[in-house]
Computed example of a mutant assay.
Amino acid sequence: MNYIKLNDGNKMPQIGLGTFMMQPVDAEEAVYNAIKAGYRLIDTANGYMNERAVGRGIKKSGVSRNEIFLESKLWPTVYTKETAIDEMLERLDTDYVDLLLLHQPTGDYITGYKMMEKAVKDGKVKSIGISNFEGEPLEEILKVCEIKPAVIQVEAHPYYPQTELKERTTDINMKVQAWYPLGHGDKSLQEEPIFTELAKKYNKSNAQVILRWHVQSGNIVIPGSKNPEHIKDNANIFDFELTEEEMNKIKEINKNKRYYEPNPELVASYATMELKPELDV
């Protein structure tokens, strides 16, 4: 497993398990299987409504908590709630999280960020960052923050490599964490001829080649899967290396294509979208 050094000095595994859209029963089992397969990064969020299940999966694995890099995200409706972080820790059944992000650029995210900074000082959070903050919201955070964001979680993949965002954040060494790293199940991305060619050369799957591209691009990746074999395969990418020429060929397929368009009205609606309690189903 590769680790990447964050701008606050903490180290983070470069590949982990994402639990987006997983029902609690599936999330618990996937987390358990991932940790047993050698994963040490687990990603969840208030909005996924599976934090309790993630906590159970970690406990079930038998691996010491201090060996797991646990990450969650605060939903906009709790950005101003003083007990939000304590309630999150209770759901996860842990004393701290290794990384905490603001989930969406809406609501009073400035207060939310200040709350996370306080949590770092209180020892409840080790590193902080942002998710889906681009453009003006990102600039606002960078303008007022006392602790620079260590990670920005955004859609990123070979069709949308986030080149401009990376250029903007180079000076503060903020790492990009990619969601939809494999293109949200889009066969046209995974079946690009360059990936088929490289998969044959390295005796890997097309998905493994794409994940290797992420790692060599400096991204942190959190592919989600409930399939134990897929979970194992997704992490089996550290026994080969793409050449500079191959990395340059992959650059050529950039289509500046998102799978999720951050519609302003939809993003704004998250500020009043109350979350339901987690159901153990």
Rank of each mutant, 00 (worst) to 15 (best):
residue 259 Y to T: 03
residue 53 A to D: 01
residue 9 G to A: 04
residue 236 N to Y: 10
residue 275 L to W: 09
residue 94 T to N: 03
residue 280 D to L: 14
residue 113 Y to I: 02
residue 99 L to E: 04
residue 221 V to R: 09
residue 117 E to V: 10
residue 46 N to C: 14
residue 29 E to M: 15
residue 150 A to V: 02
residue 107 G to L: 07
residue 226 K to L: 15
residue 222 I to Y: 10
residue 18 G to K: 07
residue 65 R to I: 07
residue 176 V to T: 14
residue 117 E to P: 07
residue 232 K to Q: 10
residue 189 L to H: 00
residue 52 R to Y: 10
residue 62 G to E: 02
residue 102 L to Q: 04
residue 63 V to M: 09
residue 75 W to V: 09
residue 123 G to N: 08
residue 57 G to K: 04
residue 163 T to C: 04
residue 93 D to E: 13
residue 83 T to R: 14
residue 150 A to P: 00
residue 275 L to Q: 08
residue 158 P to S: 02
residue 174 M to Y: 05
residue 101 L to A: 04
residue 112 G to H: 06
residue 160 Y to A: 08
residue 91 R to C: 12
residue 35 I to Q: 05
residue 193 P to A: 06
residue 142 L to Q: 03
residue 258 R to C: 07
residue 137 P to T: 08
residue 46 N to F: 10
residue 32 Y to D: 00
residue 132 N to L: 06
residue 159 Y to A: 05
residue 244 E to I: 12
residue 103 H to V: 00
residue 160 Y to D: 08
residue 164 E to Q: 15
residue 228 P to S: 11
residue 196 T to S: 15
residue 215 V to N: 09
residue 252 E to P: 02
residue 93 D to L: 05
residue 43 D to R: 03
residue 144 V to T: 08
residue 160 Y to F: 15
residue 177 Q to P: 02
residue 217 S to P: 01
residue 58 I to M: 06
residue 171 D to Y: 12
residue 31 V to A: 00
residue 14 Q to N: 08
residue 20 F to W: 15
residue 128 I to E: 00
residue 270 Y to K: 14
residue 179 W to E: 04
residue 28 E to V: 05
residue 5 K to L: 12
residue 74 L to Q: 04
residue 126 K to L: 11
residue 176 V to K: 06
residue 255 K to W: 11
residue 221 V to P: 01
residue 224 G to R: 15
residue 165 L to P: 00
residue 56 R to C: 11
residue 222 I to K: 10
residue 17 L to R: 12
residue 266 L to R: 12
residue 130 I to H: 02
residue 260 Y to T: 11
residue 11 K to A: 15
residue 136 E to R: 15
residue 151 V to T: 00
residue 255 K to I: 10
residue 12 M to T: 11
residue 248 N to C: 10
residue 172 I to A: 03
residue 172 I to V: 08
residue 58 I to E: 01
residue 15 I to H: 07
residue 245 E to C: 07
residue 150 A to K: 02
residue 55 G to C: 05
residue 23 Q to K: 14
residue 177 Q to T: 14
residue 276 K to W: 06
residue 270 Y to Q: 13
residue 193 P to T: 06
residue 100 L to A: 08
residue 257 K to S: 10
residue 97 V to G: 00
residue 31 V to P: 00
residue 213 W to H: 00
residue 33 N to A: 14
residue 155 E to L: 09
residue 188 S to E: 13
residue 274 E to D: 08
residue 220 I to Y: 10
residue 84 A to E: 07
residue 252 E to R: 10
residue 217 S to G: 02
residue 54 V to H: 03
residue 102 L to W: 08
residue 119 A to L: 08
residue 86 D to A: 03
residue 137 P to A: 09
residue 171 D to S: 14
residue 109 Y to H: 07
residue 109 Y to P: 01
residue 146 E to S: 14
residue 128 I to Q: 01
residue 45 A to V: 00
residue 98 D to W: 08
residue 193 P to V: 07
residue 132 N to F: 10
residue 98 D to H: 10
residue 107 G to K: 09
residue 158 P to Q: 03
residue 86 D to Y: 03
residue 185 G to W: 03
residue 191 E to H: 15
residue 123 G to A: 08
residue 169 T to P: 02
residue 67 E to N: 13
residue 175 K to C: 04
residue 168 R to M: 09
residue 240 F to Q: 01
residue 102 L to P: 02
residue 159 Y to M: 06
